[in-house]
Deep mutational scan, measured.
Amino acid sequence: GATAVSEWTEYKTADGKTYYYNNRTDESTWEKPQELK
């Protein structure tokens, strides 16, 4: 099967917290998305 390329990108805020942003859905989350686990 084809490997899905994750749409999630990991970013850090100014105070060093990590969050994740999805370019396709324009969604952001503090929790690590399922695709990255």
Rank of each mutant, 00 (worst) to 15 (best):
T9K: 11
G1L: 14
Q34I: 13
N23L: 10
D15R: 02
K37H: 12
Y11W: 07
E27S: 06
E35L: 05
K37A: 15
L36H: 08
E31P: 01
E35T: 06
T3I: 13
E35N: 09
K37Q: 15
G1H: 13
W30D: 09
T25R: 03
W8M: 01
A14R: 07
G1W: 14
Y11L: 15
S6A: 11
E27V: 09
G1S: 14
Y11P: 00
Y11G: 05
E35M: 05
Y21M: 04
L36V: 06
L36R: 04
T18P: 05
Q34M: 11
D15N: 07
G16W: 00
Y20A: 00
W30H: 06
D15T: 07
T25Y: 03
K37G: 15
T3M: 13
A14S: 10
G16K: 01
Y19P: 00
K37Y: 15
K12Y: 09
W30N: 07
W30Q: 06
K12Q: 10
A14T: 09
Q34D: 15
Q34T: 13
A2Y: 11
S6R: 09
G16E: 02
Y21W: 05
W30S: 09
A14Q: 11
K37P: 10
S28F: 15
K12L: 10
W8Y: 02
V5G: 11
N22G: 00
S28A: 12
D15A: 07
E35A: 12
P33G: 02
Y20C: 04
T9H: 10
K17Q: 10
G1T: 14
E31N: 07
K12V: 13
S28W: 15
E7P: 08
A14L: 10
P33I: 02
R24S: 10
K12D: 02
A14M: 09
K17G: 05
S28E: 10
E27G: 03
T29D: 03
K32A: 06
G16M: 00
T3W: 11
Q34L: 14
L36Q: 05
K12R: 14
K32G: 03
A2V: 13
T18Q: 04
T13R: 03
E10T: 08
V5I: 14
S28Y: 15
Y21T: 04
Y20V: 00
D15F: 05
T3Q: 14
E7S: 07
Y20K: 00
T9L: 10
L36E: 06
T13H: 04
K17S: 06
E31Y: 07
T18K: 06
T25D: 03
G16S: 01
S28H: 14
A14E: 10
W30A: 07
T3S: 14
Y19R: 04
V5F: 13
N22S: 03
Y21P: 01
N23F: 11
T25V: 02
N23Y: 13
A4G: 14
V5A: 14
K32F: 06
K17N: 07
P33H: 02
T9Y: 09
N23Q: 12
T29S: 11
K12A: 05
T29E: 03
E31C: 15
T3C: 15
T25W: 03
Y21D: 01
E10Y: 04
K32I: 11
T13Y: 03
P33Y: 02
T29A: 08
K17I: 08
A4S: 12
K37S: 15
E27Y: 04
N23R: 13
E35Y: 06
E7W: 09
N23W: 15
K12E: 05
K17L: 10
E27I: 07
T25M: 03
L36Y: 14
N23C: 15
A14I: 11
S6K: 08
K17E: 08
G16D: 03
P33M: 02
E7K: 03
Q34G: 11
T9W: 07
P33E: 02
Y21A: 02
N22Q: 01
G1V: 14
Y21H: 09
A2L: 14
T3A: 14
T9F: 10
E27H: 04
S6N: 11
K32P: 07
K12M: 10
W30M: 10
L36G: 07
V5Y: 12
K12S: 06
T18L: 09
T29R: 11
E7I: 08
N22A: 01
E10W: 05
K17P: 00
A2Q: 12
S28R: 15
P33N: 02
G16L: 01
E27F: 04
T13I: 01
A4I: 14
Y20W: 15
D15S: 08
Y21E: 02
T18F: 08
S6I: 08
S28L: 15
T29W: 05
A2D: 12
T3G: 12
T25S: 04
S6P: 12
T18D: 03
Y19E: 03
E35K: 04
E35D: 11
K37W: 15
L36S: 06
N22C: 06
P33W: 02
N23K: 14
D15Q: 06
A4K: 08
Y19G: 03
Y21S: 02
W8R: 01
Y11A: 06
Y20Q: 00
Y19M: 08
E31H: 08
E27A: 05
R24I: 15
E27W: 03
E10D: 01
E31L: 08
A4F: 10
E27R: 04
E10K: 04
Y21I: 07
S6F: 09
E7H: 09
P33Q: 02
T18M: 05
N23S: 15
L36D: 08
N23A: 15
Y20H: 01
E10H: 03
E35G: 09
T13L: 04
K17V: 08
A4E: 13
D15P: 00
T25F: 03
G16H: 02
W8L: 01
T25L: 05
R24P: 02
K32L: 10
S28D: 03
K12W: 06
W8H: 00
V5R: 09
N23D: 07
T25I: 03
K32Q: 08
S28M: 15
D15G: 07
T9E: 09
K32E: 08
D15H: 04
P33L: 02
T3H: 12
T18G: 02
L36P: 05
E27Q: 10
Y11K: 14
V5M: 12
A4W: 12
G16I: 00
Y19N: 01
L36M: 11
V5Q: 12
S28G: 10
W30L: 09
Y20D: 00
K32R: 10
W8V: 01
T25P: 01
R24L: 15
G16N: 04
T18E: 04
T3Y: 07
S6W: 08
E7Y: 09
R24Y: 14
E27T: 08
R24T: 10
Q34N: 14
E35P: 06
W30P: 06
T9R: 11
G1M: 14
E7L: 07
A4R: 07
L36F: 13
T13S: 08
E31D: 11
T9D: 04
N22E: 01
T25G: 01
Q34W: 14
Y20E: 00
S6L: 09
G1N: 14
Y11Q: 09
E7Q: 08
D15E: 09
V5T: 13
W8F: 02
G1P: 14
G1Y: 13
N22K: 02
T13M: 06
P33F: 03
N23E: 11
Y20R: 00
A4Q: 13
Y21L: 04
T29I: 08
T25H: 02
W30R: 04
S28Q: 12
Y21R: 09
